[in-house]
Write a protein that binds this DNA or RNA. Structure first.
Lengths: 219, 219
DNA sequence: TTGACCTGTCTCACAATATGAGACAAGAAT
DNA sequence: ATTCTTGTCTCATATTGTGAGACAGGTCAA
């Protein structure tokens, strides 16, 4: 028996189908190839997901992620008031530093980007909202791991750690002592330098405080 | 047998759970009440969805829509290039009119808002991205129904049709003759008047043309 | 303390349910 | 005309999910 992710076989298969069309819409044959399901099963589940709006056919008749996902994402952020409340502080951080800024939360041993603003520079970091990143690399990872050294200092930096050529500085957003999110700026090493904390830590930490205030988090 | 939406019972139940937590996060008992599932089944499926990231526990331990939805929504809009390409034109339309603007696409006999910008006014229309609206009411509905009169004129208006106190003007975004989307402005009747087309149709139609150009749609 | 009543979680015998090989029609490419 | 595709559907089979009920731990009131 193939090991089941969730204990519910049908769900695993349905989610495998969603994952298969996530990177790129594809026809039934490609769906079968990417998921390893039988043709009949892939088709049946795809049609079922289509009925629920999680899948749709694009102009070429291929399967693509459906518009139901938009409403679900909205519900997800609504239940996570941080992202909305943080927006003004994130905008200010981007304008003050001129670099891309991101807000991450921890999710089951990984971190997910729940808000992202891009630098106006031509060469810039791009992290889409919803992107899943590891917890063991990057300044945001250190923050969300609640590394004692990082917490004492109040911020973390990383240089070419998670991705070549990229440097970043992040600070914890706290609520009642616990770290609930990580704010950060990131960009090319050429602009941020090999000691990005020296230049950006102050602004990043200020943004973290502003987010805590905006979200009315308990101190 | 309860009639199944999709033909796959487990999927129906799983999606029912997602729908139940969509409006507001809730504990297991409320989940059972809202979905009509047995306690054991609701719990088992909720845990399964949690394993897939579509569900998570919030700070109070209640079930909420998970962060996986963010990545899916991104995939959905990526496969629907219109929303991104239309953004500059939508911003210009909002700034020119001072009213909320929306972009809708047709989806299975309904319409879904795929982009939404809000008016700076205190009293304004709010349509969240991902919102599902009927096709048989509102100016956007007329456009997406491809009403012949509307297509000849190039735009549609509605006054207190879909919602009391709200007026709107929409125009079709075309590709190869077919209507692929509807752009529109909407706001309180007090500002838009009972003949909103007279004042706003020109700007809305111009926005539609700009979107077609930005998305490089075939004429 | 006690008891009543909540949570969330788990087990297990049962049968309802999803499965997948294969058939089918309709195009597309040869 | 032949040979690939493509999406769709059927049906006998057993794999799979089901739900009553038990359980542990928590909260509340008396």
């Amino acid at each position: 028996m193939e090991q089941s992710v969730s204990g519910i076989g049908v769900l695993d298969k349905a989610l495998a189908i969603l994952a298969a069309v996530e990177t790129e819409p594809c026809a039934l044959a490609a769906l079968v190839e990417r998921t390893g399901l039988s043709r009949a099963t892939a088709h049946r589940l795809a049609v079922a997901l289509e009925a629920h709006g999680l899948l749709r056919r694009d102009a070429e008749g291929r399967f693509a992620v459906g518009l139901r996902a938009l409403a679900l994402a909205r519900a997800a952020t609504d239940a996570l008031p941080l992202a909305e409340a943080a927006l003004p502080a994130l905008e200010q951080l981007r304008d003050a530093t001129g670099e891309s800024v991101q807000l991450y939360v921890r999710d089951e041993g990984r971190r997910v980007c729940i808000a992202s603003l891009e630098s106006p520079h031509g060469l810039r970091t791009i992290v889409p909202t919803g992107a899943v990143l590891p917890l063991d690399a990057g300044s945001g990872g250190k923050v969300l791991r609640a590394d004692p050294d990082v917490l004492r200092r109040g911020w973390a930096e990383s240089v070419a750690e998670r991705e070549a050529g990229v440097a970043s500085v992040s600070a914890p957003v706290r609520s009642g002592g616990a770290v609930v999110a990580a704010v950060g700026v990131s960009g090319p090493i050429e602009r941020l330098s090999r000691k990005p904390g020296a230049r950006y830590a102050e602004a990043v930490v200020a943004a973290a405080r502003a987010i805590e205030a905006a979200a009315a988090l308990a101190p």
